[in-house]
Amino acid sequence: MLASSKTIGEKSTTLLVWTAATFIAIPFCWLVGDLLWHGWHHLSLNFVLAVPQNAGREGGIGPILVSTGLIVGVCMAVALPIGVGAALFLSEYTPHDQVSGRLVRGSLDVLAGVPSIIFGLFGNAFFCQTLELGFSILSGGLTLACMVLPILIRTVEESFRAIARDQRLSAAALGLSKKCSIQYILLPAAIPGILVGSILGLGRAMAETAALIFTSGYVDRMPTSLLDSGRALSIHIYDLAMNVAGGNPNAYATALVLVGLLMMINLIASRIAEQWTTKNQLPT
């Protein structure tokens, strides 16, 4: 009696768990399948390189890829040095319990949770208006830099902390100055971690839309300078889907390109991280 009721309970919960799992899997397959189904035959080298025509209904995404690259490039060029510097300071100069370090860390953790549309508002007020950069690739890139800094700093700081204490002690015991030990020993040793952090930041920047709508703008022409407005891939999808009747086919293809790029980025990051951890686990 007892045994049978138990099995019924066990069976129903198993069913419940499998059902929930399927409920998540179905839309995923649907989404990816849909993108591939509608986007794949639209995708060609010509689409990737060509200039958008007729508000994006026809033509390709060439200038949009260039703008995206520039925006993300500005973002990383600004965020990377500041991020690595801050991470170094947090890991090498502030003990875990020091107030200043805790303040910076806490503020960054909160910043990581700020919605992207708020970054968009901030970027619009600060970079576009106060610094008079206008709707430009520069404004967009700087706004994204603010957004990716927290995730970048956290990953890079962890990779510095993962370096064995013995390395620091040996460096000091050889009479190396702090700067030298950071420059020649800690930084090179943390390069995989810095790479993973930057790639994750890059992915986040590339996926972003809301922060860019009113910082980098909508213009879909080929940018000639960083002060030109430039349209990112994600904004192109948004615009085609919402504002351009008959833009869906190209929106599908663009979404496929964007998702493909992001998956590639994630793959590279996890490969590096994997190799790094296996290397670190080798007996020394």
Binding site: G85, Y93, V110
Partner: peptide, 24 residues
């Protein structure tokens, strides 16, 4: 100089939240 430039980076990063809030 090196330690101060690192400190600068960390102050900049740490005050970003304040900057965002104050501009909004």
């Amino acid at each position: 100089y090196f330690s101060w430039s690192l400190r600068g980076c960390s102050i900049l990063a740490g005050s970003l939240l304040l900057l965002v809030i104050s501009f909004i």
